[in-house]
Design a binder for these strands. Sequence first.
DNA 1: AATAATATTTAGGTTATCCTAAATTAATTA
DNA 2: TAATTAATTTAGGATAACCTAAATATTATT
Lengths: 227, 227
Amino acid sequence: MDQLIPNQTIQDYLKHIYNLTQNGQPANTNTLAERLDLRPGTVSEMINKMAKLEPPLVDHQKYQGVRLTPAGGKMALKVIRRHRLIETFLVKVLGYSWDMVHEEACRMEHIVSDEFEARIASMLGEPSHSPHGEPIPTSALAMPPFYEHTLASLTTGQYATILQVPDSDPGLLRYLSSIGFTPGSKVTVLNHSPFDGNLMVTVNDGNASHVVGLPITSKIYVKKMDS
Amino acid sequence: MDQLIPNQTIQDYLKHIYNLTQNGQPANTNTLAERLDLRPGTVSEMINKMAKLEPPLVDHQKYQGVRLTPAGGKMALKVIRRHRLIETFLVKVLGYSWDMVHEEACRMEHIVSDEFEARIASMLGEPSHSPHGEPIPTSALAMPPFYEHTLASLTTGQYATILQVPDSDPGLLRYLSSIGFTPGSKVTVLNHSPFDGNLMVTVNDGNASHVVGLPITSKIYVKKMDS
DNA sequence: AATAATATTTAGGTTATCCTAAATTAATTA
DNA sequence: TAATTAATTTAGGATAACCTAAATATTATT
Ligand SMILES: [Mn+2]
Ligand SMILES: [Mn+2]
Ligand SMILES: [Mn+2]
Ligand SMILES: [Mn+2]
């Protein structure tokens, strides 16, 4: 399987296309360019190349966006598995804080061997989720279904358990852990502001309350524990 | 320090120049090309570029071989430290066998952060030697002196402790461990053949004896325990 | 439907790192 | 010392992955 995965550049394209197509829509050039921090022309060119590889990694018809082929999907999941396993490893074994692992994992994911992947997975007990609560594809590359509800969908009086937070902004991650927003925490909505979407919440029934805005709450996935 | 180290290509040049200049002689283009698995023209070009970087990483006058500058030497030691720390980590923490670690370390050494380096060093107790017995530069990049004596320099009746074996040939490493030639083992020379240099030895005063040729014995460093 | 705005692609160019083959310099041998 | 051989450098070219800017297609607005 190792030798089937192309180089680092294409691996990062695959990951981002995977994420952008989770909603059922094809990924478009501009969004991809922004996520990859590249110019649209560069992305257009590379998409074309990926569609012409044997086997093709993406389906693409001009001006209509891009989707992963089965081969591309498998490779994307392989890279995502490595990324999240490495993040878990860095936190659990090396004692990194959760805001420091994404970048390191994003470099390591492209160069470690199957051997490395298998050994850390086994040492960690084949974990199912990264430190940020993102699901880890199994070694057979099966991916659990995506979470449905975000914190933003809760209203006054509801409570929920945090499942997943966004992984790539270190500053946000430090803030989230400072207010106790980590996977497994129970949050209770004291107040939901109707116009700006702000949520006033307590964490684990503590005394302190926090007001958190839509840019954050809309990216945190939860399990609703409706009363 | 992180940002001072140039890219992977140059890092591997630095490592190999470091090793080739340990004998006091400058490294020549052809040898370097062979070690790096590149054509001499490619190496000539890159040497030139490295000599023109600011600060220059190598000293080079045409047709006279190449040496590291102080800046180049520091960077070489940084990469070597990472390589050997990673090898140690893979064996001690992840349970790799010693023949599987060199290649993995050769990829990882270029992309891990100072944070990663510091954490594995600390977890391992700031180890002084890799699994193959190669010295690990300190975090201040101090390198212990090279070993003096090879197994090939022993004669009949002498014995010694193995300090270091060559690290990059997996087949050789598997053979060496199969006959007990690992750092710390005590070898006793039963017989030294004068013309071919073959050595008949026992390991740790065991019953079995092994005949080992010059291509191997000349690359194994030992501490002589002269009787 | 025509126009304007936006998204995408294409064209042409740059840099890094490799190559082969020719030219040059250095070292060895006669 | 001259000729030969070996080592090194230089010249010219390829490919991957980026860029900017122009051209084109699609989508939204009047
Ligand atoms: Mn991540
Ligand atoms: Mn990455
Ligand atoms: Mn090694
Ligand atoms: Mn390397």
